[in-house]
């Protein structure tokens, strides 16, 4: 068995528009089972839709944002949505709601809003940065 590896996982594909969040979740679970570590999850571009607290799929479909939230909380893995991607697409935390005087916020816990600096830091600290893209 080779040594434990630390991953940064970047998701750029949105739930329901792509398989990216589900493939990434299957990968992340297996990586932990294999004894590896996930340093952080970073949502970029359309991937930020995974951090919306307002997604409401039919009750008999898998709720990917909720599944991700539960996984992140159970495993205590930090996760962030890129601020520029998120603001453009209407994924807003309370700080940005106040700054831009918006009607509501909708960021799903435990996701946070952060800059691309989080991604740069992930590249530097983790052994691997893995991207899960959309299908278009």
């Amino acid at each position: 068995m080779s040594k434990a590896i630390a991953y940064t996982i970047v998701i750029t594909g949105a739930p329901w528009a792509s398989q990216a969040p589900q493939t990434a979740l299957m990968f992340a679970r297996e990586a932990l089972l294999a004894g590896h570590r996930i340093d952080r999850v970073f949502l970029y571009g359309d991937g930020v839709h995974l951090a919306s607290a307002l997604s409401t799929p039919p009750s008999d479909e898998t709720h990917w944002p909720r599944a991700w939230s539960e996984f992140l909380e159970q495993q205590n893995i930090p996760a962030a949505a890129c601020i520029a991607s998120a603001l453009r697409r209407g994924v807003i935390d309370e700080t940005e709601q106040a700054r831009y005087e918006l009607a509501a916020s909708n960021l799903r816990a435990p996701f946070e809003i952060a800059g691309l600096g989080e991604w740069v830091e992930g590249n530097l600290k983790s052994d691997r940065t893995l991207y899960f893209h959309g299908s278009h």
């Binding site: 970029y44 571009g45 520029a84 991607s85 453009r88 800059g115 691309l116 600096g117 991604w119 740069v120 590249n123 530097l124």
Partner: peptide, 19 residues
């Protein structure tokens, strides 16, 4: 699409951290 602009933001942020 905005994909290219978001690529540009990525490369700018690497530059910002001297990578």
């Amino acid at each position: 699409s905005w994909a290219g602009r978001e690529a540009l933001d990525m490369v700018f942020s690497l530059a910002a951290f001297d990578q």
